[in-house]
Design a protein around this nucleic acid. Structure first.
Length: 776
DNA sequence: TTGTCGCGGGG
DNA sequence: GTGTACGCGACAA
């Protein structure tokens, strides 16, 4: 029985299959588009629902069209009020509020959020009906269209659209182009895009940065050219707006940020999916479409690349190249949407919100809150109002550094999903959640996630079924892991936020980590570093992998049920530098560098190369090899056998030429001196350039990342006029210094002694050994 | 050197 | 009628 109720909290209760979009208005008219799974053919249904809201007081509520009922429990939002139309509902509630307060209240938004809960019409409909999107539907049954604008620049007030690539739901790509570079040509191009969308009639429109670029740009241009943007399935032409923190600044009110909405279609931005994915995975080199597509193996070897600011120029010389580029863009956007879009798709089967809202929402306020609201209403329970904290500060996780330097036979052990596990193990939930709904949701999700993972394994690799189960599992993990964030959210951000409960979770977390460390140390290992939910340690020389696994399971057995300590990995050696900064040598010989000290986008290539080589030698105990890496690099700089590119670093231009020239005399900056020295007199903000230092000034080198353009003759000649002494100093002070924890200070000066200033009493390299220094 | 702010993307 | 965090780079103090 209890399980049935929890299932309703998780999924809703109405089994209607195949909902692909919902549009509703405040007066209780909803339109539902469905693709019944067996036919896949789109049907449109008009349904009526009764607009409703929750309020904390119904004194002076006028009799008549409005009905209300009182919910159970102590929650402040205890009156469920509804009416035939939203107009009648709001009028009655405003009348009541005005009478009570003695002042004229004209909008619901004037009421404090602790005294009223009023959802957008679609969500009122979904919460009340128990329906949700996509039941019995797979991701591939959705009709998805991608379009990508090519423009003459980034500013829709000054620049134009000259090309649009459109990929229809069948996967056919069409390239639309303006016939002329004037208003008439651009207007006609927009009209053809609109016609194309109407003909393809997709459920979903996707692109990378759709909400940040393509939609706002298109809207602005269409308005300027007076072309009606009839992209929706119903209603009058024109894009609608909704408030969105991560939207673009509204044209009408600079303080408002908005996203565009179209009746009957879901507008999905793959950039949102990428950010949500990388938030957990932290494995992407960047969030741009090209980088992501390459990372997921979606980009072909012949992928056409053109630097953003060159696209229009290239189009004028070689339009075919830009067509190939635009085609690749929409194809990759479709690929990224399929690879990463599954989580939001799965969330839409659970939470009572539109798919596009679940795609851009944060998991705590965007997913958990709607689930809790629906659970409380289904149970006839009053909802607590938002409440500010009582001033208690939130305590975070533990971080310990036990040893620095070089250690061998490293093991990493960690607790999977530590915080939700602790919430479940010790039944830590929000004090005001009298239904225990948050913990029930977390319990249900963890169990169902295991089932989803198992089903995914059973389904054939690459099948839609496998994909659906995997996506469901990913979505559930996302929600489970944000349950703690929901508790800890400050400023009364979430309805059930509870800093005391959150502190109890982190306190248990610190206790668990400390306990693990003690028990491991008792079993004869050398602890290196412990952070939040995991610990690195070194084991004695005589131990086998079986011994390593045995200590981990011994300690795991001492932890509470539901708190699972896992053997995460083993490594040949580790250089521990600072907390969260270390290098790991895998048993297969590959080296992994973690933390700011070892990887920085600004680092000069020669330094990075030296660091990798030196650390790799260090971790296999080859001190001579470390010395050689250092000497080779010093000599390469002194002999100028290093190309200039290797000493350059990539910087971003943040001052205009005018701004810099005004302050140049008081403070010289390498970036701008380099631009000036290379003959540039103007540059654009945000531009990235590679700069280096010369004995007398600075210079610029071309960056191959940008080189879809042919380098000019000048750039091909490498003058190698970099400042030798400066770069030798950089090598020692910022790169070799990353190895200083591995040696005594005497040994460090021997290994990294300047070859031009031999010390008379230098002890031999043979006496130098890598060390491990333990704290205290 | 150390703290604060703002960005990440799109042409 | 909204709401991530984190790592990094730029800038000011």
């Amino acid at each position: 029985m209890q399980h049935l109720i929890e299932d309703e909290w998780l999924w809703g209760w109405d089994p209607t299959p195949g909902i692909v979009s919902v549009w509703a208005d405040v007066d209780g008219e909803a339109t539902v588009w469905r693709r019944p799974p067996e036919t896949g053919v789109l049907v449109r249904e008009a349904v009526r629902f009764r607009p409703w809201l929750l309020i904390d007081n119904i004194d002076d509520l006028p009799e008549g069209d409005v009905t209300w009922r009182e919910l159970d429990g102590p929650g402040a939002l205890r009156f469920h009020v509804s009416a035939d139309t939203g107009k009648a509902l709001t009028a009655a509630v405003l009348h009541s509020a005005s009478t009570r307060s003695g002042r004229r209240v004209e909008r619901l938004s004037e009421l404090d959020k602790s005294s009223v809960l009023s959802l957008p019409p679609e969500e009122q409909y979904l919460v009340a009906s128990g329906r949700a999107y996509f039941r019995d539907l797979t991701f591939d049954q959705l009709h998805r269209l991608q379009f990508d604008l090519e423009t003459t620049g980034l500013d829709p007030r000054r620049h134009r659209i000259f090309m649009v690539a459109v990929r229809d739901p069948a996967g056919e790509v069409e390239i639309l182009e303006a016939a002329s570079a004037d208003n008439a040509g651009e207007a006609e191009l927009i009209r053809r895009l609109v016609a194309k969308v109407q003909a393809a009639d997709p459920d979903v429109i996707e692109n990378h940065n759709l909400h940040g670029f393509d939609l706002p740009f298109l809207e602005r241009r269409a308005k300027q050219l007076r072309v009606p943007l009839a992209l929706g399935r119903i209603g009058s032409p024109g894009l609608r707006q909704r408030a969105a923190r991560r939207g673009t600044v509204s044209d009408y009110d600079a303080d408002r940020r908005v996203r565009f909405v179209i009746p009957g279609r879901e507008l999905i931005d793959t950039l949102d999916a990428v950010r949500r994915f990388d938030f957990a995975a932290r494995e992407l080199p960047g969030h741009g479409l090209k980088a992501v597509a390459r990372h997921f193996g979606l980009a072909g070897p012949e992928r056409e690349l053109i630097r953003g600011d060159q696209i229009h120029d290239v189009y004028q010389r070689d339009p075919e190249r830009v067509r190939r580029y635009a085609r690749a863009d929409v194809e990759e956007a479709a690929g990224v949407a399929r690879v990463l879009g599954g989580a939001a798709f799965a969330l839409a089967r659970m939470a009572p919100r539109r798919y596009e809202r679940l795609a851009d929402a944060g998991a705590a306020t965007g997913v958990i809150d709607p689930l809790l609201v629906r659970a409380y209403l289904r149970s006839g329970q009053a909802l607590p109002a938002h409440q500010d904290g009582d001033g208690t500060v939130h305590q975070g996780a533990a971080l310990h550094l036990f040893a620095t330097g070089v250690a061998h036979r490293i093991v990493k052990a960690d607790v999977a999903s530590l915080y939700p596990s602790l919430m479940r193990a010790f039944r830590i939930g929000p004090a005001r959640d009298r239904l225990g709904a948050l913990l029930a949701l977390v319990d249900g999700l963890v169990e169902k996630r295991l089932a989803a993972k198992a089903s995914a394994k059973l389904a054939p690799a690459g099948s839609a079924e496998r994909y659906t189960h995997e996506a469901m599992s990913a979505a559930m993990k996302l929600v489970v892991n944000s349950a703690y964030g929901y508790l800890a959210a400050g400023d009364g951000l979430t309805r059930f936020a509870d800093v005391h409960a959150a502190n109890e979770v982190t306190r248990r977390g610190r206790e668990t980590l400390d306990f693990m460390c003690r028990e491991l140390a008792n079993r004869g290992v050398q602890l290196i570093e412990a952070d939040t939910d995991g610990v690195y340690f070194a084991v004695p020389e005589s131990w086998t992998e079986a011994d390593e696994r045995r200590v981990v399971s011994e300690v795991a057995a001492l932890l509470p049920a539901r708190v699972h300590l896992e053997f995460e990995g083993r490594y040949a050696a580790m250089l521990s530098h600072e907390p969260k900064n270390y290098a790991l040598l895998h048993y297969d010989g590959t080296l992994a560098l973690k933390g700011v000290a070892f990887r920085s986008s600004r680092a000069e290539p020669f330094g990075e190369a030296f660091l990798r080589r030196a650390i790799e030698r260090l971790l296999v105990g080859d001190i001579r090899g470390v010395r050689e890496a250092y000497l080779d690099t010093v000599f390469a700089i002194r002999r100028r056998s290093l190309p200039t590119y290797d000493v350059s670093s990539r910087v971003r231009v943040t001052k205009t030429a005018e701004t810099y020239m005004a302050v140049r005399e008081s403070r010289r900056e390498l970036t701008y001196e380099a631009l000036l020295a290379s003959g540039r007199r103007t540059w654009s903000l945000g531009e990235r350039v590679r700069v280096y230092r010369t004995a007398s000034g600075a210079g610029v080198v071309p960056d191959p990342d940008d080189e879809a353009i042919t380098p000019t003759g000048d750039a091909l000649v490498d003058r190698r006029d970099y400042d030798i002494n400066h770069y030798v100093r950089v090598l020692h002070d910022t790169f070799a210094s990353r190895l200083e924890r591995a040696f005594t200070s005497e040994d460090f000066s021997v290994v990294f002694a300047d070859p031009q200033q031999p010390s008379l009493f230098a002890p031999g390299l043979d006496d130098v050994k890598p060390r491990l220094f333990t704290m205290r």
